[in-house]
Design a protein around this nucleic acid. Structure first.
Lengths: 230, 230
DNA sequence: GCATATTTGTCCGTATGTATA
DNA sequence: CTATACATACGGACAAATATG
């Protein structure tokens, strides 16, 4: 069934390098949850479904492995990454350092404000429609917009990777949606602080919110992992 | 266990793929300046020299491209990256946000202190021996040790990439060594502040030192680039 | 602008090595 | 221990793009 839906993506295989297009397809499939964390991606199955050679697919695997979405075990193959609690903690460590530092020194242009406001607005709409998946997406876009305030391509790229990994974390957990709910109002508070030019306050707000989120997630994640092992 | 049998090394070699070993060789060649920024790496030449197949080499290219050491132009091949002034500015933006944030919240263990002190000591020795290359290496190790204070694998990896790119910047510049000289005493000041538990002061010191370094480098780099074009 | 040579992009077949039932 | 399945790595082939004269 999965291979059939993959085959539908063959039409997307035009322009740019084939390996990158394959990577883009797999990336989307992973973040959509079509491939579960821990699942093995066999070369033969995917080469057949997408109609590309093994060499090309292996190049795509390399790309995604570097993005930490896949893990490559020598002579065993590639698997969708299963982040553990240590990964979760590390992801929040990165977020605290990077996002808070960016906020503290942020100078907010009108364009930045528009983007941030749009993300909050998108979240509100999702909440009204009880679209939890959309709420998660809006939240991610808000935080990407936050890091964009630094005007650094490298920090933006780091953040994209961090948030992609966080999606993997949520994919492992049951009822991940409920964690997205309180984010919205916190984001709005941060936005207000930024609008009034108080970067320090925005950073403090974000800091305490990230601390809370991490604590909650670590707790739920540990319980979840223990449950799956038992 | 000082018996360094070749068999043991062979086991280590076998646990990494050929592509990764090729990448390691090329990475070293680039950071040593064997391959100049802008230089093209032809597939045939390298496959012949290293005795690996084209497919294997191309996987190595992928790895290094993702590290920003190479750039891949479709149907044209791979080249050693030539960072421009915008890259230089971006690299310092990342350093300021990440390194300063880490210092501000650092809790320094005895092991951390040992590592930092060792880097400073190594720098002093290099200075005494007028080993400018060694001085640059010591400086890099100091800053890697700084970021290690955060205890985050992802931040450490980011920093490794940033510092590798910075080596490319220095490779483009003439007389890059002279920029390394003042670093040493600044590092020592930061170390003293950390020892006395004053992370805020350490962060402030680093901040102003990075600002200065960036200003100097941007100026010299722009002049250098203009010269090469003219 | 054109024709040619070179290099890359992609795919395939196969031999070997490795992990696991 | 054997058998199986799979990944690793190589070399060859041809099309497509690019560089060169």
């Amino acid at each position: 069934m999965r291979t059939h839906s993959l085959a539908a993506d063959r039409v997307l295989l035009m322009r740019t390098s084939t390996a990158e297009r394959v990577a883009a397809i797999l990336r989307a499939r992973i973040s959509e949850g079509h491939f579960q964390p821990g699942e093995r991606l066999t070369e033969e199955e995917i080469t057949e479904a997408l109609g590309v050679s093994r060499n090309t697919l292996r190049e795509a695997f390399r790309l995604l492995t570097h993005e930490r979405l896949l893990v490559h075990e020598l002579n065993r193959g590639v698997f969708v990454r299963v982040p553990d609690v240590a990964d979760l903690r590390d992801l929040y460590r990165v977020r605290k350092h990077v996002e808070c530092s960016v906020l503290r020194e942020a100078t907010v242009s009108p364009a930045d404000l528009t983007r941030l406001t749009a993300a909050v607005e998108q979240g509100k709409q999702a909440l009204r429609g009880q679209d939890w998946r959309g709420l998660g997406t809006a939240n991610i876009q808000f935080h990407e917009a936050l890091v964009a305030l630094a005007g650094s391509e490298r920090l933006a790229e780091l953040m994209r990777a961090v948030l992609a990994e966080l999606r993997l974390v949520f994919a492992v957990m049951a009822n991940a949606e409920r964690f997205h709910r309180p984010y919205l109002e916190h984001n709005e508070e941060i936005l207000v602080a930024l609008q009034s030019g108080d970067g320090d306050r925005a950073a403090e707000l974000l800091r305490s919110y990230l601390d809370d989120a991490e604590r909650q997630l670590v707790e739920a994640y540990s319980a979840n992992q223990a449950e799956q092992r038992g």
